[in-house]
Design a protein around this nucleic acid. Structure first.
Lengths: 236, 236
DNA sequence: CGGACCATTGATAATTGTCAAAATTCGTGG
DNA sequence: CCACGAATTTTGACAATTATCAATGGTCCG
């Protein structure tokens, strides 16, 4: 079901239109930007960005998904975001001289579009509304982080598990006759690293939810949510 | 030692100059903005903003400090930020139709400057560099949050306690002959709510650090850091 | 079909939360 | 300036939760 790039200006259709921050631009401007965009495909496991690197581009995910994470002193990873189609990263590094604050790794095959620092700054100075869109999107992201913080700080693990299932459901879920089928973007280990708990603890919690008839584990890659209401209560 | 506002354009000296996001403006523009700014003082415990409210202004802290926090389902609070002189909040609510994502409460007497939504948007459209400064500052704040997340998720409590002491030291610490004297912006309970642990746990951890000769508890409001290096190792 | 990888389960240890009580600190008023 | 009461913090004992280690069971993909 993947769309492949066939025309000269595929970017116009595939990439730029998906990105909310460019939505205020005219067709002409979009075309100009499309010409400046660099396309690249990454295989699962490849890094799009490494913590500490000077990132010289803003990158927009055009297909597939990636995880953004930091390594902890003891070598484990804490996942901060899962970015998929239409999400972007690297923007703050372009406007300050800060280096990347996290690693970004492809979870599957990923199609990415990138725009160089100078081009991006150039566009920004001509289109102030794009800056406002970015502030808005950053605000959205901060709100998510703040919620996650609140979750990490005080909620117990059950809450957090419920919360992440609902988050994934709203992002990747498909309603069917039995419930919401959720294609998980992360492995169990990944989800555990997102929540900041041990793999085994997550397994046990999911097992419990399955016993209670709240979810059904279809396979390692997807989960069927049977009782959304119960899950919402668990998430708090 | 408090400075009071005496002249017509006190704002110019007291407020605007402290705020990095306005630093690119000319003296003339600063003066114009100063005229638009509303000053207000809040007493300890007063709320500057409540979660869910439509905030109609950007607020800049001019003196004192505030905590930004969310209530958890069980009524406890998770502190997200401590803002002091020069910090601002409420900006994202102005550019989107989102309501406030957190509460803001004065920790002491607080002098605040605020700029209304329409004025702010007006200024922004004439000064694109301010938008970039804001993106930059938001990037800074996100980086802090991301670090905090990493901390909450994976580090053990000792790490976190060390980390927050160092954070406060760099922000509020004064070097003296014995070490770094840190005026704590938060009570023990506040610090515990910042870290997302129980009051009692924090007490025990601080007690341990004192036994190990890393810190000395001067009184409830300040701590003397004796061995910064040890603290850095503990923080990871 | 087989091997590598991923996920679950069980047993145990370590950590942290909770509740109750004692000790300290703080602010106020005499 | 001291003393008192209120608020905050510390300490102790115990319970609950989660991490860890080890072994088993599944799943995916060539």
């Amino acid at each position: 079901m993947k769309e492949t790039c066939r025309c000269l200006h595929c970017q116009n259709d595939l990439c730029i239109h998906k990105v909310p921050i460019f939505s205020s631009l005219s067709k002409d401007d979009l075309g100009k930007i499309a010409d400046l965009i660099l396309h690249r495909e990454y295989k699962k496991g490849e890094f799009l960005l490494r913590e500490g690197e000077k990132s010289e581009a803003i990158t927009i995910i055009n297909g597939g998904s990636v995880k953004a994470f930091k390594y902890t002193p003891d070598g484990r990873e804490q996942i901060l975001y899962v970015f998929s189609e239409g999400d972007f990263f690297g923007e703050t590094n372009l406007l300050t001289d800060r280096t990347a604050t996290f690693n970004v790794e492809a979870l599957q095959s990923v199609q990415a579009c990138s725009l160089s620092k100078t081009e991006f700054q150039n566009i920004l100075s001509h289109h102030p509304d794009i800056a406002i869109k970015i502030i808005s999107e950053l605000g959205e992201r901060m709100a998510r982080l703040e919620n996650a913080m609140q979750g990490m700080g005080v909620r117990n693990v059950d809450n957090r598990v419920g919360g992440i299932l609902l988050e994934f459901a709203s992002k990747y879920g498909i309603q069917n006759s039995q419930g919401i089928l959720v294609q998980l973007p992360l492995s169990r280990e990944g989800i555990a690293n997102y929540l900041g708990v041990a793999r085994e603890t997550l397994s046990r919690k999911l097992g419990q939810l399955e016993n209670d008839g709240v979810i059904r584990s279809v396979n390692n890659k997807s989960i069927l949510i049977l009782d959304t209401k119960a899950l919402q209560e668990i998430a708090g």
